[in-house]
Design a protein around this nucleic acid. Sequence first.
RNA 1: GUGGGCGUAGCUCAGUUGGUUAGAGCGCCUGGUUGUGGUCCAGGAGGUCGGGGGUUCGAAUCCCCUCGUUCACCCCA
Length: 422
Amino acid sequence: MAEPTFRAPKGTRDILPPDSGRLRALIDEFAAAAGLRGFGEVVSPMFEDLGVFKRLGEETDVVTKEMFDFLDKGDPPQHLALRPELTASICRAYAEHRPVPPWKIWYEGPQFRYEQPQAGRYRQFTQVGVEVLGADDPQVDVDVISLGWDFYRTLGLRQVELVINSMGDASCRPQYMAALTDHLVGHRSDLSPQSQVTLDRNPLRILDSKRDEDQAVIAAAPSMVDYLNEECSVHFEEVRAGLDALGIPYSMSPRLVRGFDYYTKTVFEFVGDALGGSQNAVGGGGRYDRLVEDLGGPPTAGIGFALGVDRILLACDAEGVFPGPATAVSVFVVDVTGGGHALDVCTRLREAGIGADRAYGGRSMKAQMKVADRSGAPFAAIIGEDEVAAGEVTLRDLRGEAGQRRVALDDLVRDVRALTTN
RNA sequence: GUGGGCGUAGCUCAGUUGGUUAGAGCGCCUGGUUGUGGUCCAGGAGGUCGGGGGUUCGAAUCCCCUCGUUCACCCCA
């Protein structure tokens, strides 16, 4: 392959038709699902002060080594970073604008992490997500989780599984951490070298290690749910009861700890079973009752999730669902008189709200018919000298058995409507 | 960031132990008598074999570097 002068930067890609149409349709689907449940959209900046993201946790890889950060041209310069996720931005916006709680919002857009790219893992990737700020009612957790669950079902995905856990809060997590650390330190020599390093930095991280050597130690480790205090325990029970009431299946995993330090109480992940490899998390989220405060806002409970659009589409491919939208072009105009009449006919159709396209460059009828076929349009409107003389066009059915017939130019819109509405 | 696989036309891939003008299928373009696509037939365009360096009389085939991609770890969506 001849090397082009420029190519999309490492870990980024161009999304072209028809994939881009599919992406758009997926986001529209999510917008509809969120809107139906009373969520409003927030469009926030693509970059923030670096400090906004640092609050996500000093032990979080996304913060410590995966940030696209830079200095602006100010004096003194401001240290900014492309957003690696959106929860922090939303919390920053909440602290800044103080909307009336509960604040139910959804978002969509690209996010950036400086990682080694892999299938389903990009340096620029798209997420859709929701956040609810200002309500710690477990019913909110249920509402949020069910929105995610329903969304996957709407797309047609059947092999997505829900996994949940509880991380406790500031009063019970320390006791669990002590017990976990005791256990891990006691088996330090049984852990992989990498996990032994992790142990000193953030013991919780070892729980989702995928290395075989670690599995026995992890399996014997204490579970957070056994250390939950009364409040957290009741909260978790109510979340589970709510999911049960909705008939949403889930499994509990004491190993589900998530990568951000800010989570409290409920955490959950949607796993795409149809995706091989490690990039099988198609969505995840949890409750974060301290984050808004950490960003300078009032004490505010929060919960939300982010769904990886790129991975969801890979999962759709794997399951053979969500093919994407059909063409919006209903009529492809074939004009063998030079093209001037195609201009007129297309305009008539478009002004009536009927999708219309045409060929350019005065190509042969055969060539234009091929383009018409490829366009996916259900009908072709053919214009030759005969039609022009009679003030008509030949309307041809490209997909069915209706054949073709001549119609008066002034009746074209009416006839196309009749054919496309039944 | 660490380690392994891969990188030949727009796409999916063949290219034998290094040896003459690098191939196929799909796609694209043009035709198959004078206005008709989706089937069929015939032509055609399109590649300095990711890039750079080296070994050799000679390299897509061997070596080194580099870039990209992919898999695992890590992390996460």
